[in-house]
Design a protein around this nucleic acid. Structure first.
Lengths: 333, 333
DNA sequence: CTGAAAGCGCTTACAG
DNA sequence: CTGAAAGCGCTTACAG
């Protein structure tokens, strides 16, 4: 039966409900014999405490809220994978909330907090600075622990885990310059994401340092639109290196370039900044900066558990390592 | 403040908490003037009812549970996208639960039901028949409404929404036969998914009907492994048509085939059974059966709301339409 | 239309 | 080590 309550267990085990509660929450505080007896009854009846009642009484729901822009985005799904695995290990339930930059942020935060989550993982990277401030201030005031997961926001009080996309992009740009490319473009998105802003900053730095003009070409997230953009792009652009914030953009570009008879990597070196599984399905295979998104999810969830358990945390800003994977779309690395 | 309770509102509005509760749940039952007064106070204090307390008192959490195998799988993420959008519209919260075929199914179901969800969307398609029976029987007994979303299980009591993958695959195979292909292979996964089993059945039917031997080649879900499998495959196989349960498998195959000097589509027609965004990033572009996974999510969530509200439902087995998209990897359609 | 009271199923001091 | 009792923040008959 689904409706077995703590009273049923107490009755069958001939103890008070307080004792049943104790064997579930503080087993060491109850006599081993009665503990065994209660445990047996619990198993027999298939009893599981009502999580809602427990949440109300204890003021802890063992549930975390995940705030995101869109579940179906590949990066979000990867993050969720990592979060899920760690959450399961620590026995936290997961509630997901999504909202866009066009919605009332305060209202959205209220909704999340009304659900009494014990902690928040914030994955939405489509908000501007002001919106982020509203969201973060609201969460801070609520005292609910939060960790930014793959999102950048400049506030030392707020823990975050991400990758140093700026350094990664700086470095890959620099390497490309070192093996002789001059006209290097960065392909970014028309829409603003805090991550892509980091990537752009790294690219700009490297170019400036080399005394070259940074050239950012913005395209859509939609692969079919990208192709058209690139057709246009080719007509009057000199380019020998391309770095794309998304693998799909890089692949789209390579396809169009090859249609125009351009040799890749000989004439243009191309790099993707994600290393999705499609990087090895493209022709040529795509050289990438590998950014372990699953790990970001896992580590941020782990960090959040520490805050929820009030454990000591050394550094509340975690940057995970990235690496470069040389494939066929570049002449060197 | 996050800790405003119904008592605070009642106090400030000089009414009883019962009245506050009514303006939130049955506004028509309260005098317009007092209603406005209460509403004003609610707004001033930024009050939001504690969802947990509400859930306990009303026995309705307005939360649904989503049961899946792995969040990060692309199909799962797409389904979630559709679910999310509709859930938001109807103001349901979403809790996600994942578990593998290797776990104790009863235990997993108990976990979900202990959370007091009002309804369940079941997306896990990696269970075998027995495991599905255990899960479904357990849910049935609990009386919690459930909808199978993109999962097949033979039980007329259990509502489901999916696509007729069997018919779709049957038809695409048939068409390929009609334009003259004889040695048609189906590329499926080594692992069993209820959806792929449907696809296989459709393919087998069409081949048998044409008096040809169905040939299913099973490969891994891992794209880098696929490539190796296909290298092997090519050494001693006669093939002029290929249908793949996943686009990534189809693309992987095309790449290897082209490395072997095979012309696509002239010598081998290739079809993908998903139509992911990578279908237009491959060379040649991949002809696909388009299976609208987002829609399945949306429709199944909508259906679930009807069950949760005890509305009349005509047909509890919904099959969404699919369509064929001709691109460059086939000589015809 | 409104309020007082019971109850949802638990946890947690407080006594003993 | 165990039980009786209060309380978590709401909803919902029941009176009036």
């Amino acid at each position: 039966m689904a409706n077995t309550t703590i009273y049923d267990v107490a009755g069958a085990a001939k103890v008070s409900l307080a004792t049943v509660s104790r064997v579930m929450n503080n087993p060491e505080k109850v006599n081993p014999e009665t503990r065994e007896k209660v445990l047996r009854v619990i198993k027999e009846l298939g009893y599981r405490p009502n999580a809602i009642a427990r949440g109300l009484a204890s003021r802890k729901t063992t549930t975390i809220g995940i705030i995101m822009a869109d579940v179906s985005r590949s990066a979000t799904a990867q993050l969720l994978g990592g979060i899920q695995d760690i959450a399961k290990k620590y026995e936290y339930s997961i509630k997901i909330f999504s909202f866009g930059a066009d919605e009332d942020i305060t209202e959205a935060m209220r909704t999340v907090l009304a659900e009494q989550v014990d902690g928040i993982l914030f994955l939405n990277d489509e908000l501007d600075k002001e919106q982020m401030k509203i969201a973060m201030d609201y969460i801070k005031e609520s005292m609910v622990p939060v960790v930014l997961s793959n999102v950048f926001y400049d506030d030392e009080d707020i823990p975050s885990v991400a990758i140093n996309y700026e350094a990664a992009t700086y470095e890959i740009t620099k390497r490309m310059l070192q093996y002789g490319r001059k006209n290097i473009y960065l392909f970014s998105t028309a829409r603003k994401y805090s991550i892509n802003t980091q990537k752009e900053a790294g690219y700009i730095d490297a170019m400036n340092e080399a005394g070259l003009e940074p050239k950012i070409f913005r395209t859509s997230g939609d692969v079919s639109v990208n192709a058209l953009h690139f057709e246009e792009f080719f007509k009057n652009t000199k380019i020998d290196g391309a770095i794309a914030v998304r693998d799909s953009i890089a692949i789209s570009f390579m396809n169009v370039a090859q249609d125009y008879g351009v040799k890749i990597p000989e004439e243009i070196s191309v790099v993707g900044l994600q290393n999705t599984k499609y990087a090895i399905l493209s022709r040529p295979n795509l050289t990438c900066v590998d950014t372990p998104v699953y790990d970001i999810g896992a580590v941020s969830m782990r960090l959040l558990t520490k805050f929820m358990k009030q454990e000591e945390v050394g550094n509340n800003k975690v940057l995970l390592p990235y690496r470069f994977i040389r494939r066929k779309s570049t002449t060197s690395l």
